[in-house]
Design a protein around this nucleic acid. Structure first.
Lengths: 170, 170
DNA sequence: AGTTTATGTCAGTCTTGTTGACATTCCAAT
DNA sequence: ATTGGAATGTCAACAAGACTGACATAAACT
């Protein structure tokens, strides 16, 4: 169907993974895989009145308990108004607790309640199950490559945030 | 911050990539990388009156010229109403052409016009540039692993669609 | 002839994002 | 002590893009 398929580019074995066809495959792999990636938690969230935005907030509050709204904002990359709507419902529903900062009282520190942690577990269990299967099927070396490429694909600021969560703040 | 970080799990080198901490990292890597993945075309689309949905339609029409609406529907995983709105504007703007099927006249076969192909090139150039850099930085083996994990993460039906586009229909 | 399929369209709803405007609180510098 | 700016919250309005449900049309199949 595509030209590149019927007429392969000869550029040495080591460069073949940079052909337009290879890059297109990477793009499509990302598209289809991301759908699978979100499918399981989405099903759970649909049963409640929540969406993906709630999941993201819950995930990162669990990951970095006590994080400020501003910090969460920069990780999620949305406006404060958008996040605030999500947080308001989560707080009202008793899944998230917002504590006024002791050092700086303008800041709100966010924590999951027991109910919030329960939902987080339920959601991430579903998501991790798929990730676990994929990791197991592909093997450790593939997983290392997977993370390497994804990290290289991030914006610089997001790579910082990612490494910060991964290795802890320096 | 997390237990798993301060107290690593000893389960043999070959299983360490299946710890909850490793899986969480995979989840976050997907989240942050997907943002980078869509960032460049999103910027271009924002200048026009288009969004990510238009990009997806254009991408797959370009990838499989002459595809039917129904086929595109199953690849994109949206409702016909949702796709129709996007297609209507693309056809009205002269980027996509819809031809009545010769064999089955109920079907509409979709093609990009010259203008549509021009936009497709512009969008995918931006997206491939990032992918190319990421691939080059990570190296061929990492790329192989990247694709392997992503493929394992897809739903079965999406994996079929992906392979179909990748290797051509059997 | 009747049913199913492919497509299109109208109407209404929901989530999640956006901007802009404005209030409150509080730290920090003058 | 006052003023300026930062962090947060809230209101309103809006748009994209997904959804459901209902209905129309034409073509194909049985």
């Amino acid at each position: 169907m595509s030209e590149a398929r019927s007429a392969p580019v000869y550029g040495g074995e080591s460069l073949l993974f940079l052909t337009d066809e290879q890059l297109r495959q990477g793009i499509e792999a990302m598209f289809f895989a991301y759908r699978g990636f979100t499918a399981d938690p989405d099903r759970i969230l649909a049963e409640m009145a929540y969406g993906r935005a709630h999941h993201r907030a819950i995930h990162f509050i669990n990951r970095a308990p006590g994080t400020t709204v501003n910090n969460l904002l920069s990780i999620l990359g949305v406006t404060k108004q958008s996040l605030n709507r999500v947080l308001r419902t989560l707080i009202a529903d008793g899944l998230v607790e917002s504590r006024v900062g002791t050092v700086d009282k303008r800041e709100r520190h966010l924590f999951l309640t027991d109910a919030g942690r329960a939902l987080e577990t339920k959601l991430s269990d579903a998501q991790r199950a798929r990730m676990r299967t994929a990791f197991k099927d592909a093997g450790p070396e593939a997983v290392a490559g997977f993370k390497q490429v994804l990290e290289a694909m991030m914006d610089t600021s997001m790579r910082r945030a990612y490494r910060n969560l991964k290795d802890g703040p320096t």
